[in-house]
Design a binder for these strands. Structure first.
Lengths: 306, 306
DNA sequence: CCAAGTTACGAGTCACGTAAGGATT
DNA sequence: AATCCTTACGTGACTCGTAACTTGG
């Protein structure tokens, strides 16, 4: 046991380099990231080189572009870090502005549809008739970053989880589960399984599936939960409208997995998934809530529900 | 409900500005921060001005220097953020290096003394005789940042908490409580309270206290836990040696609060604190542990203990 | 009036863009 | 041959330091 002297040195890692790295890693392309970030391709190359020489580790494999092991590790940290930077900026900036006469709610399509959002908003508008409420529907990642940046006051995201729930993947945002529902597979009426009471996900590994990652969980996620391979996309739906997706599935273009709460009460043939035990959960996500703000009131309205 | 378009814009906040801001806020001085960071005072002034103009909020009051409300908010985010940057760097950098033949443990003085550290290290050295073990003792903040930076493989910190324990103040590091003990006040033998079985902290608010923030909890913390004012420093001990502090207290220079486990078995008069119910807890702190590393083994040895 | 932060200004650096160069498919 | 990343190089912007200025105790 020796007494300690504190050491402190130069610390070059700068945020812009991380932003660029994340963009390149996500897009799998230097030139793509250049367009997205408004730089030239050469600048991107230089920034990545700077980051790699700073950390003294190759972060990306080139041609095709993919993350190295170290790069993957950095990516995890970087995404969280940049999100938190956004939270910090939003949090501080908010303090200058007047106490928000409007409420902007971001939501993924299924979160907007299921969960008590519509009811909670009704209750809120009853209590604050003059409040200007906006709901914006978008992909999960966009909802999260927009909430982090303060563009949305709060967000609702959804996803599949095992009934025992971890999922607090971003430590800079607070997430609370506000509703859970079973999940079901939408089938065409003439499908052999139609009418069954329940089914096992793994039995459908070889069926034709619809990849609709803007609406429901991507097939890769379903594959992971089922624990078996398969679930290959036979059809791709890029829209964000739930009803259209249901119609496509009902018309036999492929299977899709949705929470039971998202299904229309009649006219659609759907079978409950009984194994594995997964639930569709809606999470209420927010940064720091200001006492008495509309966002805080909405949180209170949503929280107590099961 | 309207469909969504994702928005994305310029994001100037850079890490260096945050480092400077944190230094200034912590030291309460531009010129002090300049010395610490190796800049001129003017540069610091410019960096703070840049940050404030970027965020469009005054962050610091000048003369004397203190944080504004917005600044205080930013400070919370910034400290966590910078720590996480360090964690990211250490995590990635570690991947280049060979699998560590040495183990460096950082610890606060009381954490090194109490807790099963000595025993756990013995067990570890028995299993890995050739392992080069170093224990460095330092202040809590230094231990945390050094662990974050990878300078220490793991850390042991200590502090007072209510028996129901939150304390995971840094989301980028993992902390596990590994030992708890009651706390006691060290008295001189001729002190009127000496020999009592227990006492209430609030009864000692007006006594002479020793401020020894490098060893035990600062008086401000004790004041907070007691819930009453007082606990004013009558004596200041800047060292990090527990025994010296105990001797000073025993000699009547003032009171000090220590975990019972840190007291020598005989020769010292000390009285247990019975109210409020606080415990001294030692936390085991680490970043990401590599499978099979000495650090991971030590974690396993320390974890099961109560 | 002194300590401490701000402002002005010049200099050096650093990072970007242009453009040419490789490499891989 | 086409695409995509890297390298070379010149230029512009940015940030730092010096030094003069200002303000508050």
């Amino acid at each position: 046991m020796v007494s300690c002297t504190s050491i402190s040195d130069a610390y070059p890692v700068e945020a812009q380099l991380l932003r660029t790295f994340v963009a390149v890693a996500r897009l799998g392309s230097f030139s793509g990231a250049a367009v997205e970030l408004g730089y030239t391709q050469a600048a991107i190359s230089q920034q990545i080189a700077a980051l790699e020489s700073d950390l003294k580790v190759p972060l990306l494999n080139r041609r095709p572009v993919s993350t190295t092991e170290a790069g993957a590790r950095l990516l995890e940290h970087a995404e969280e870090l940049l999100l938190r930077l956004d939270v910090a900026r939003a949090d501080v900036t908010r303090m200058t502005q007047p106490p928000a006469a409007a409420l902007v709610v971001g939501a993924t399509p299924l979160a907007a549809g299921s969960s008590g959002l519509a009811l909670a908003l009704s209750a809120l508008r009853r209590r604050r008739p003059r409040l200007d409420v906006t709901v914006q529907v978008g992909a999960r990642a966009n909802v999260l970053t927009s909430v982090a940046r303060g563009e949305f006051d709060v967000g609702l995201t959804d996803g599949l989880t095992a009934p025992g729930d971890p999922l607090s993947e971003f430590s800079s945002l607070t997430a609370v589960g506000i509703s859970q529902a079973g999940v079901a597979i939408v089938l065409s009426c003439d499908h052999p399984l139609a009418g069954r009471a329940g089914l096992r996900l793994s039995d459908l590994a070889d069926a034709r599936w619809i990849e609709a990652s803007d609406v429901t969980s991507p097939l890769s996620e379903i594959r992971r939960l089922a624990g078996v391979d398969g679930f290959r996309p036979a059809f791709r739906y890029d829209g964000s409208d739930t009803m259209s997706l249901i119609r496509l599935a009902a018309a036999g273009h492929g299977l899709t997995l949705l929470p039971e709460t998202a299904l229309p009460p009649t006219g659609i043939s759907a079978v409950r998934v009984t194994s594995p035990r997964v639930v569709h959960r809606v999470d209420f996500v927010h940064g720091s809530l200001r006492e008495g703000s509309p966002a805080a009131e909405l949180a209170a309205l949503l929280a107590p529900r099961g």
